[in-house]
Amino acid sequence: MNVGQLIFSTTFLATVIRMTTPILFAGLAGLIASQAGVMNLAVESIMLTSALAGVLISAWTGSAWIGLLGAVLIGIGMGFIIAYTAFTLHADMVLNGVAFNLMMTGGTMFLMYVATGQKGTSTGVPSKVLPTVSIPLLRDIPYVGEVLSGHNVLTYIAMAFTVLMFYFLFKTKLGLRIRMVGENPAAAESVGINSKKIKYLAMCLSGMFAAFGGAYMSMAYMSWFQNNITAGRGFIGMAASALGGNMPLGTLMASLLFGVADAVANTISSLNLPSELVSMLPYVITIIGLVYYSIYLGRKKAPSAKAGKGAKKEEEKTA
């Protein structure tokens, strides 16, 4: 089979969608935080923690859905804790996020060992898997049906969230307030909006989306937890939201791009290429994408660059 055949095969395209799902969740997590003017660097660790939580809770309760619920609640809780340390205790958000990521890399391993006595993977734990959905009518369309139908329920939830996110941001009062706070908290405060509250909310929502992404990794993409199961997808998701201009459609497109890169890496590893080289691909694309994006943005902003500089000066002054 040559590369062309590979790329347009239904299995390849279905793989793209499978690979895109967790990145899209992480992207939404990055998006909502950024819209409120907050940088949630801890998406990766929230995903990782929720991935473990989903496995453990579903194993204990025997229900995949309760597992998912638990994972999501833990994600929201982590978002809240980070918000509390940053906005109430005034800890530095970047250092905070890095600390969370480092802590949970080891922390999830430790917790898994404490809870199950296993190291490395949780294959011995009777955890549940979320169901796949076969969509009537769609599944009967040749080619398209094979690509789009039969994915895990979380994949469709991710798509639905993307659409809902658009409506939330642009068609609700709360969405407008989030955007206002994200862009100019002083302006929001001047009309009586509590920007701290809005930022807390955004962090909790961010934690929720990240948790869905984590649950997808351990309860759909795989059926167990293993060390570093997210493998940087939280960071790639943040890159996706940045690349997508923190807009729902843009984030979806950027996530698809990274999904393709992942799928290509997956697929061509069957060809005789060094797998280490291939696994670099998504990250190389991330860097190229971000550089392109900043150059593109730089050009777009060029005419008003001077004004921007002035505005920045003002910001520094008020800070």
Binding site: L176, R179, M180, E183, N184, A187, A188, S190, A311
Partner: peptide, 10 residues
Amino acid sequence: NLAESLTVAE
């Protein structure tokens, strides 16, 4: 005290 990327009405 304005958010630059939002519309006038917003």
